[in-house]
Design a protein around this nucleic acid. Sequence first.
RNA 1: GGGCCCGUAGCUCAGCGGUUAGAGCAGGGGACUCAUAAUCCCUUGGUCGGAGGUUCGAAUCCUUCCGGGCCUACCA
Length: 679
Amino acid sequence: MSERRILVTSALPYANGPIHIGHLVEYIQTDIWVRFQKLRGHRCIYLCADDTHGTAIMKSARQRGVSESDFIAAIQSEHERDFSGFHIEFDNYGSTDSPHNRKLCEQIWQALQEKNLIVQRQVTEFLDATTGESLPDRFVTGTCPKCQADDQYGDNCDKCGASYTATDLINPISTVSGTPPVLGKQDHFFVQIEAMHAFLDAWTQDEKHLQVEVANYLKGHFLHEPLRDWDVSRPAPYFGFPIPGTDENHYWYVWFDAPIGYMASTQEWCDRTGEEFDTWWRDDQTEIHHFIGKDIQYFHCLFWPAMLKASNYSLPTRVHIHGFLTVGGEKMSKSKGTFVKASTYLKHLDPNYLRYYYASKLGPHVDDLDMNLNELVNRVNADLVGKFVNLGSRTAKFVEECGLASRYPDDGGLFAYAAQSGDKIAQAYEHGDYNRAMRLIMSLADRANPYVESAEPWKLKKDPAQLGRLQDVCTVALNLFRQLAIYLSPVLPQLAEKVGGLLGDPLVDWQQAQSPLLGTSVARFQHMLKRVDEKDVKLMIEESKEREEEGTSTAHGTDSGEPLLAEPLADECTIDDFTSVDLRVARVIEAADVPEANKLLKLTLSLGGEETRTVFAGIKKAYQPEALVGQLVIMVANLKPRKMKFGVSEGMILAAGLGEKEVFMLTAHEGASPGQRIH
RNA sequence: GGGCCCGUAGCUCAGCGGUUAGAGCAGGGGACUCAUAAUCCCUUGGUCGGAGGUUCGAAUCCUUCCGGGCCUACCA
């Protein structure tokens, strides 16, 4: 087997939220493939990075009142922690917001310009009125022009399914600031990808590069007609890299610099290891494999090859495309608790379960993967614990004293058969047909357990004359166990390590499955994998539900960002501005309904001593008058009195909320006295 | 509206032109006790979504219908 040089990537996770079990389908799938290649003795590196640019990141950072850099740094460390929690091992994990990436973007941009592929053209689009940034369709909401449903996104309507452009919305609102957006004409830069149509036709229709269904999709949707120019710029302000020569008025659209992040991550790795960048991106002998989800085929199978081709880099050898994760046949749902974050999973369950379960479901096609929690429990317990781990745990202790025999005994051809199966299993891994690989491996385990059963080592150990036979039987069983561990090690590296430890010989090479291990000592058997407890699965689902009720989950808290969006922070004020408002603690001494009014209660507030104020407060729908008497509230005491229909209001009390029944008064904790000022 | 994928035992799937359609799990019966109530043996269970067609022969190829999923709808 000649050594291959293989560069592998997974899609860059967007630095706008936590990793969840849907993401993990891809990272686990890729990690298994990479570990398999390494085990086979190939030169293989696995690269990834956080995807950090774009409007969504700006918005999220702003919502939390932190800089974009701080925001993406915090998310990235969470991502890396989650990945390592699932034994996903990158050779380098970078960020698209890196100097290397910027440099590569500039270089590729220049190459595109030199090939005359870039044009500049005006685009009419919505801009946020307060920041001037351009608004993607998903960042504008309003009333559907067709069915009048409120609160619909700018691309299509959830209610009636109509699609339109954001400018068609009635009463559009920017979700960035909560204000109506303004129409603006902006210069954008476009890549004239049609110039590469013939190349893309040929490249995408080659079965070596893409799955057939993907090639069909691209042909049917895009390549059957002239390709439209690709809009790759956004006007400032934008969190990303400025396009050279535009005085920082234009930035690259996040999808321009994201895939280049694969290269930037490679460059970082090269810097660290002393490798040559061009060996990996400009050498025909190097294979480049991208693993992505079907949602981003378009970028990876059209634009990306075009960019690489135009700038003289190697093209992807293959783009491996997978489907989405569903749970119980449905999309992941926050309210049903099936939108499980990686970190939540790890609190309750062992990562090995998910790695094996996904492996047992993944095939080489774009089909969606349906996760059934009962099935996960069954399969892990039956296959991993019952068949695989059990093989070691039922025989190892019989040979703790004497170790493995020095000559391999007759096993009726079991070892040889499993050794022979290695090629078939390897082929299944190679083609991404993990589910086939798992079936093949488990069928080997199904042959090994009956062997132990019929050899009855537990009887042999009782007869001193049979100790040699006992050692032989266990030598066979443990060698079969070891073969399984080698075959499973791309999926379950942690278990492979434990098996290596048990037998005093680390499992590092696929070929180790070809010859039995003999004459070594056997360590005391230690528990390798706990059975899945259904209760833990339920707890995980419950926790995932609770998170949702508290609001949109984020890296920094679980409260929703909606209130701030609905009412953005006011302009800065000085301490003097603040002190000009005199806030006082007041006790409600009388509270009366105003029958003619819809919203008002008439309150008499005491500021201590003889001082009282009459205040009309719009809290009728939220509070019963009698419940208020005696409470300590906060009032604006120096507010200019205002004549109202029902009398003069001499101040106002403080409350938060959406209005109507959703009104929540501020009260002072007991111990404060009426008349005290709020500082 | 267009496109793609899927529909085989209760569940997850294999088989993709050729002997009476298979596996694992679940169900039923038995055995064993070394092992994480694990394991082993036996066993129930399918007119391969429906209908046409091609063929000596179809779960397997073609057409069509039904059901499910996903992606799109002059946006990427």
